[in-house]
Design a protein around this nucleic acid. Structure first.
Length: 415
DNA sequence: AGACCTCTCGCGAGGAGCCT
DNA sequence: AGGCTCCTCGCGAGAGGTCT
């Protein structure tokens, strides 16, 4: 039976003097204050462990940091746990363990684990790009924070300066990457939910800026300027090659002699060099073959068709064409990538099958179902299209407008 | 010499257990 | 249940050793 104990008063506890030996003051129901010879006063709760019924005690902290009423609240909590057959100490340990674990999982640490998984599905360079963006914009403010303590408002405030600078695309990517880390920590059981899933809506979406380009009508002027421009022959040929083949700057500048199938009159860009990671074949037109003939004495003995100016063992830098176009006075009006847009516009205006045009541009079909059924690359249908386009460029070079060309006077080459 | 690391040791909070 | 005493272990100060 519980003994009848008179509850302690503040004065009793406050005035309790240390003695040579430790002594205790009881408040009842297992709660007592241990007064130590050093003068420190510690709240202890004495109880029987559930099941084993072994006597033990747990500390509730020191007086005056923990007041009498605090200690009584803690006693009530402990008694409630005991009623449910939960050992208050084990419960407390579990809670501290949980808290400790939470504190250990900082945003930076979890990001590292996430990156270990992520890096297997992305290229090395992209993985580096992701990590660098975290190092620059996220880790300085949020890296050391436990991931469980991360709030939307704090994360948004961290990204605000980047948005204010106008780097909305960076903000969008950071939001997306941070969310990948958060989802990872949910899936691995570090946190229960992701409070950051909507942070992107706190920012303006980046406005897509289409790469500047000229209209097909302006092509003759461009070709004239190109022919008069003070640029190296290799760069000139590269720009023309890019224009004729409708390839992306990186795909055309790194073209290798080994990728040319002379027999089938086709240039085969291997999958790993394509943006879409799918092999891309381009039917060669007489105009393209002519460009290769010009380059042969220059680089025929080398790996790359358009070797770099400084080190001919390397391909021309993909920015070289852009720099040349800029110097030609087309800054803000045309970039190397825009050459593809001219082709697309001209071919669509001419009424060619849009699917064939898309295939020529090696655009991946946005429609997944259509993509699944539409595996053909229209290689043979593309030959006349490419020839028409090459003729069109040639006409532009002679200063003719597109009206003088029609699909009737096509010359189909290859088999 | 100063910086940095490792080890030792005392203190004290909290836990264990016997006595009444 | 309450009282009493002793034990354990983590922590931090500081001594001492090692590296640059």
């Amino acid at each position: 039976m519980a003994r009848n104990v008179k509850p302690l008063t503040f004065t009793e506890v406050n005035k309790a003097k240390p003695r040579e030996k430790e002594y205790t003051l009881s408040d009842g129901q297992g709660l007592m204050l241990s007064v130590r010879p050093s003068g420190s006063k510690v709240w202890l709760f004495k109880y029987q462990k559930p099941y084993t019924k072994k006597r033990t005690n747990i500390s509730f902290g020191s007086f005056p940091e923990i007041s009498i009423s605090d200690a009584r609240k803690l006693r009530l909590e402990a008694l409630t746990l005991l009623a449910k057959l939960i050992d208050p100490r084990e419960h407390k340990e579990q809670q501290t363990q949980g808290k400790l674990a939470e504190l250990e999982y900082t945003f930076e640490k979890v990001s590292e684990s996430w990156m270990a998984v992520k890096s297997s599905t992305v290229s090395e360079n992209y993985a580096k790009d992701i990590w660098r963006s975290f190092e620059l914009h996220v880790f300085p403010k949020l890296g050391k924070l436990p991931i469980s303590k991360l709030t939307a408002i704090e994360t948004i405030n961290t990204l605000k300066p980047i948005a204010a600078k106008g780097s909305l695309e960076t903000v969008k990517r950071l939001c997306q990457r941070i969310n990948e880390v958060m989802d990872f920590s949910v899936n691995t059981g570090i946190v229960n939910s992701n409070p950051l899933s909507k942070i992107h809506s706190a920012f303006h979406a980046p406005k897509k800026k289409n790469m500047p380009t000229i209209t097909p009508e302006e092509l003759p002027q461009f070709m004239t300027t190109l022919s008069r421009a003070s640029i190296k022959l290799t760069t000139r040929c590269l720009i023309e090659w890019q224009l004729h083949t409708m390839t992306r700057p990186n795909e055309s500048s790194s073209a290798r002699w080994s990728e040319i199938d002379w027999g089938k009159s086709t240039w085969i860009v291997p999958a790993e060099r394509m943006k879409s990671r799918r092999e891309h074949s381009i039917p060669l037109t007489p105009q393209m073959l002519e460009l290769l003939n010009i380059m042969k004495p220059i680089s025929g003995h080398r790996e790359f068709i358009f070797p770099a100016d400084r080190d001919p063992r390397k391909p021309t830098n993909s920015q070289t064409a852009n720099a040349a176009i800029k110097r030609m006075g087309y800054q803000g009006k045309l970039v190397s990538h825009g050459l593809r847009a001219i082709a697309s516009t001209a071919l669509n205006e001419q009424g060619f099958n849009p699917d064939v045009i898309e295939a020529a541009l090696s655009h991946v079909d946005g429609n997944e179902v259509r993509r699944a059924y539409n595996r053909t690359d229209y290689l043979e249908q593309r030959r006349p299209v490419m020839c028409w386009w090459s003729e069109y460029i040639e006409a532009a070079t002679r200063g003719l407008s597109n009206n003088t060309l029609s699909t009737r006077n096509l010359r189909v080459i290859g088999d």
